[in-house]
Design a protein around this nucleic acid. Structure first.
Lengths: 125, 125
DNA sequence: TTAAGGGTTGGAGTATAGTCCAATGTCAAG
DNA sequence: CTTGACATTGGACTATACTCCAACCCTTAA
């Protein structure tokens, strides 16, 4: 498949796909091109792009996603290394979740105590 | 008070305070300056800066905060607009938290059964 | 043959939210 | 009178994540 089709199927623009390749987020490892220098993709990339979409929607930066994708490339031999990286990611995830939960509680509190000058309540949060 | 003191008391840098003034986030309305063109602030600004800090920590952009501040100035009676904005932010937060929680559970699961291709599990998220 | 519709590149521009810097002005103390 | 610690400005620069553009190449159908 060429870039236009992948763009349609994935929901990412062609420019975004080229940008992701440029920053090393999606695999250029095989340097697959047609004779006329067109990028060629297979089904695998759609799976990968869906992962990226999910992770992006979850608040990961492209750099973090790159790290996570790298975990996927590592094989059995270095499994110990993988679990270490996963553990690090889990710590970050836990922090992020508790931070977001705190923010959510703050906003709910703000909403319920909001009567007139809403932002005044922000002082007490 | 001059900008340096406000910077210390608020936790925002002098550059950031000047930037906030430039984008109209904090009030330049009175154009208060000393004879030698130094900015002058009173206690009010610290309250405002605390509101900004809270809203920023809640994931609002500076533009959104600007809107919220403006509403607070104008709308003495109802906070309908404010609660609408807060509700929108709450929906996003809730979605983000549940996605992160799912990913966290997933990572925990695949940590125990890690055979290399760890991120495959993300397909089902 | 030519026009439409794909693809390529490098580079510039956008938005957000600052941060840093140089040149310059002001002020109080030693 | 000079030094240090404040302040001012405009403009350049950072990072993230794109988005657009010009100029060009390739293919196919009328």
């Amino acid at each position: 498949m060429k870039i236009g089709e992948i763009a349609k199927l994935s929901g990412f623009s062609k420019d975004t796909l080229r940008y992701y390749e440029k920053i090393g987020l999606i695999s250029t490892n095989k340097k697959l091109r047609t004779e006329n220098n067109y990028r060629v993709y297979d089904d695998h990339i759609l799976k990968q792009l869906n992962q990226i979409k999910t992770l992006k929607a979850s608040g990961f930066t492209l750099n973090e996603i790159k790290d996570l994708m790298a975990l996927n490339e590592v094989d059995l031999v270095t499994c110990l290394h993988v679990t270490t990286l996963v553990d690090e990611k889990l710590v970050k995830l836990t922090q992020q979740i508790s931070r977001l939960t705190q923010i959510k509680e703050n906003l709910i509190k703000l909403k319920t105590t909001c009567t007139g000058k809403c932002l005044e309540t922000l002082q007490e949060i």
